[in-house]
Amino acid sequence: MMALPLSPNAQAILLLTAPLMVGHAPLSPDLLTPGEYNCLARHLRELGRQPADLLSSDDGDLFRACQPVMDEGRLGRLVRRGFLLSQVVERWESRAIWVMSRADAEYPRRLKGRLREDAPPLLYGCGDIRLLTSGGLAVVGSRQTNHPVIEYTMAAGNLAARCGRTLVSGGAKGIDQAAMDGALAAGGNVVGVLADSLEKVALKRENRNSIVEEQLVLISPYDPCAGFTVGHAMQRNKVIYALADAALVVSSDVNKGGTWAGAVEQLDKLRLLPVYVRSTGESSKGLDALREKGALPWPNPQDAGEFEALFSPTMVNPPATQGSLSLFPEK
């Protein structure tokens, strides 16, 4: 477990884009959207500068130079939130929550490489960051589900653990929880990618114990105090897939819901990894529809050999190469 000291670029990105939530204080209306931030970052790069330069005290010229892409006054108001920043960071630190930015060397390369500008500018987390680099099996599905599917999912998590593969999931109730429980029970490693409430979830006793044992890392692209929103849940799916080497969808609606959207995006567009769907038990329209879009039937592996084969089927594009696409020169 480690608490990262904030890099100057991380400070700047937090000031520019993060809500910096403590209590119920109103959020700054000036926050940059991911799109706006990307635009500013590109502009800075063209100027040969970095976000951190906005925080040096003789910054007047740089702010003016950014005027073509971003209002000077707005930038000024954002970066003057320094004391607020120190307040939230202190709160996170005291709860063993870390934060890193896309500009930091520790930021998981697979996220940067695979998602490019869609990689979350900030990643908050609690637990051992080394777990983020281990790839593994993503298991996704809907919140509402029934008992046999839960059992099935736990078994999948369990198998991943026994085969020494990390399990990546969403940390929501239902399927996510079942997959994580299955893996943790077998002593496996788990990455939980949350769409909300990192602070609360990390303090939950079951999670806390697994975090302390360095079996579990919880991460989120959203403020540790942020509540649930549909949009966040969708964005979060991208991160789950990007952190894994193969994915299993255990249940899904058709044409709606986050699970569907996330899987379809992989099959149609991103193609980062092989996507499997549950192939036994109660049939499902959603899963059938995914099959039509190219998802593979889960071959119900029985041992480590069969399980490993899942990660390199022949018919899928290989994962994108993990070149450095970072916005800022790496150290």
């Binding site: 970066v79 320094g82 920043l85 120190s86 202190e90 630190e93």
Partner: peptide, 10 residues
């Protein structure tokens, strides 16, 4: 701890 995370412009 607060000072440690204060940006240099404050």
């Amino acid at each position: 701890r607060i000072v440690r995370s204060l940006p240099p412009n404050l």
